Amino acid sequence: QKTCLICGDEASGCHYGALTCGSCKVFFKRAAEGKQKYLCASRNDCTIDKFRRKNCPSCRLRKCYEAGMTLGARKL
């Protein structure tokens, strides 16, 4: 079983350049394409896991970029 690099849930494949679950794939697409700016209410070090991935979109998006996700990457 492969694990999502963002939240640790079961990965569905390589999306936008990183091994992710469906939830993180859709989140990244919407967040990266959108005009909304996300700000962390804490210290930009929130725990992003399967159960808390929706708590801080700022840290989740940062983790996506750190994992190498880009909109230009093709699905592998």
Score class of each variant (00 low, 15 high):
29 K>C: 03
72 G>I: 15
33 E>S: 12
14 C>N: 04
39 L>F: 11
15 H>A: 07
48 I>R: 04
58 S>T: 05
14 C>H: 12
5 L>C: 10
76 L>S: 09
47 T>C: 09
71 L>K: 14
47 T>H: 12
38 Y>I: 15
33 E>V: 09
19 L>I: 12
58 S>E: 15
1 Q>W: 12
58 S>V: 07
22 G>T: 10
44 N>A: 10
4 C>G: 02
72 G>C: 10
29 K>M: 05
45 D>M: 06
63 K>N: 08
71 L>Y: 11
3 T>H: 05
9 D>T: 07
37 K>S: 09
57 P>M: 09
13 G>V: 10
19 L>D: 11
49 D>W: 03
12 S>E: 14
57 P>L: 10
39 L>I: 14
25 K>I: 05
33 E>C: 15
41 A>D: 14
29 K>T: 14
73 A>R: 13
12 S>V: 12
29 K>G: 11
9 D>Y: 02
50 K>S: 08
16 Y>V: 02
72 G>L: 10
23 S>T: 05
16 Y>C: 02
24 C>F: 00
48 I>G: 04
9 D>H: 15
63 K>H: 03
30 R>H: 15
4 C>K: 01
21 C>H: 02
15 H>Q: 06
52 R>G: 13
56 C>L: 03
18 A>P: 05
12 S>K: 11
58 S>F: 05
22 G>P: 12
30 R>G: 11
3 T>V: 05
46 C>M: 00
44 N>W: 04
56 C>N: 00
35 K>L: 08
64 C>A: 04
23 S>N: 08
21 C>P: 00
41 A>P: 08
57 P>K: 11
45 D>F: 03
12 S>N: 15
65 Y>M: 09
47 T>N: 10
68 G>D: 02
13 G>F: 05
48 I>K: 04
1 Q>R: 05
73 A>T: 06
58 S>G: 15
23 S>K: 07
17 G>K: 05
30 R>S: 12
23 S>D: 10
30 R>A: 09
52 R>A: 07
38 Y>G: 05
44 N>R: 05
35 K>G: 12
7 C>Y: 02
17 G>M: 05
4 C>Q: 00
19 L>W: 14
47 T>G: 09
20 T>L: 07
4 C>D: 03
26 V>G: 13
41 A>H: 04
35 K>F: 08
71 L>G: 08
23 S>G: 11
40 C>W: 00
38 Y>A: 11
37 K>I: 09
45 D>N: 13
8 G>W: 03
74 R>K: 05
30 R>K: 15
15 H>W: 15
65 Y>S: 06
5 L>P: 04
71 L>P: 07
24 C>L: 01
36 Q>A: 12
16 Y>M: 08
39 L>H: 12
25 K>A: 14
50 K>C: 08
46 C>I: 01
44 N>K: 06
38 Y>P: 13
14 C>G: 08
44 N>V: 04
29 K>W: 14
57 P>H: 14
5 L>Q: 08
13 G>I: 03
46 C>L: 01
22 G>L: 07
8 G>Q: 03
8 G>P: 01
49 D>V: 03
25 K>N: 14
22 G>E: 15
74 R>V: 10
8 G>K: 08
55 N>D: 14
21 C>Q: 02
3 T>F: 10
15 H>M: 09
72 G>Q: 15
56 C>A: 03
15 H>N: 07
23 S>W: 08
41 A>F: 08
47 T>I: 12
38 Y>E: 10
21 C>Y: 01
1 Q>V: 15
5 L>I: 11
3 T>Q: 11
18 A>Y: 01
29 K>A: 11
34 G>D: 04
14 C>I: 15
24 C>N: 00
39 L>M: 14
46 C>W: 01
48 I>M: 07
44 N>T: 07
33 E>D: 10
33 E>Q: 14
14 C>Q: 08
39 L>P: 09
5 L>E: 10
